[in-house]
Amino acid sequence: MKLYAISDIHIGHDANREALKALPAYPEDWLILAGDVGETEEQLHFALSELSRRFARLFWVPGNHDLWTLPGRDGRDELRGEAKYQRLVQICREHGALTPEDPYVPWPGDGGQTVIAPLFVLYDYSFRPASVPLDQVVAWAAEQHSVCADEYVLHADPYPSRAAWCAARCDYTERRLQALAPAQSVVLVNHFPLRQQFTRRLQRIPRFAPWCGTTYTEQWHTRYGASVVVYGHLHIRATDYVDGVRFEEVSLGYPRQWRQERGMQGYLREILS
């Protein structure tokens, strides 16, 4: 029995969708989907339908693409912000996938000493140089054509801003993590990296970093007894150790960012066994 993870499968791209359809079955194993499955409810339904037949248990956290609100076919906007997120949670539950709103589940491989904690923590633009004021961060990123599409299609309703939504999610998540037994270790799962240091890999688009997380979570890996932290978003696969904790960036990415002859199975990262 193994726990695998992958993120940023972006099945709106034909090559990624076909790779998902060709994925072999892992009937005894669990899978973490660490965000950015796609941009529509149909894509999430499709991915979860395919994956729930291949894995014994699924975990899902939202990525920024999942939360996008795109114009509907009738010209009206679809659900926005918190309402959109709650709709995605409902879809996951229809397919038996666990979400950041569900109880944390123990990993049976070590007698229940490790729990898997899906998180939904956004970003608040704090991943920026100290010399850049918050109210100038978008203009600063625009100087190098690095403004994230979230500025136009990821809405925070009913919160006044994405940063305010992030703060609310951090408060909510900390309350849940603080309730865990001190002796338990935790696999923390979030779409966005919990530490700013990993955005240094964004060498081609360094000014994209403000849309990649919050400094509020910098010490969560030690504060809450993490054994592994799983994340995506950067599309730069990596394994790192910080304070003895393993950090796994598990992105698949866009078709140009992975070798299609390997199939999606070649990019499943083993987290626990």
Rank of each mutant, 00 (worst) to 15 (best):
L58C: 08
V115P: 01
V186E: 12
W165Q: 12
Q144P: 04
A181K: 04
C212R: 05
D36Q: 06
M1S: 10
R195G: 11
F192N: 12
Y241V: 15
E82N: 10
R176Y: 05
W258L: 10
W60K: 01
Y125F: 15
H95I: 00
E50S: 01
Y125V: 09
F247I: 04
A34D: 13
G72M: 02
L268S: 10
R246E: 06
P210C: 12
L67C: 13
W165R: 07
A168W: 04
R53N: 07
Q90Y: 15
L180R: 14
D29M: 12
R207D: 13
E143D: 09
D240I: 08
D77E: 08
V61M: 09
F55M: 01
H65N: 13
Q184G: 08
A163C: 06
W140A: 06
C170E: 07
E50G: 00
S126Q: 13
L252A: 05
W211T: 10
N64Q: 09
Y123A: 05
A83S: 14
L3R: 10
P27I: 07
P129M: 08
T173P: 11
F46L: 08
G109P: 03
V228F: 15
L177C: 13
E143N: 03
D171N: 06
W211N: 08
E78K: 10
W220Y: 13
Q203H: 13
Q203R: 15
P24H: 06
R204Q: 07
G35V: 02
R73H: 00
S227F: 03
Y267I: 11
V89D: 00
V228N: 05
Q178H: 14
V105A: 04
F208E: 09
L234D: 14
A163M: 07
T99G: 12
W107P: 11
V147K: 03
A83E: 15
G12Y: 08
L272E: 11
Y172V: 00
T40D: 02
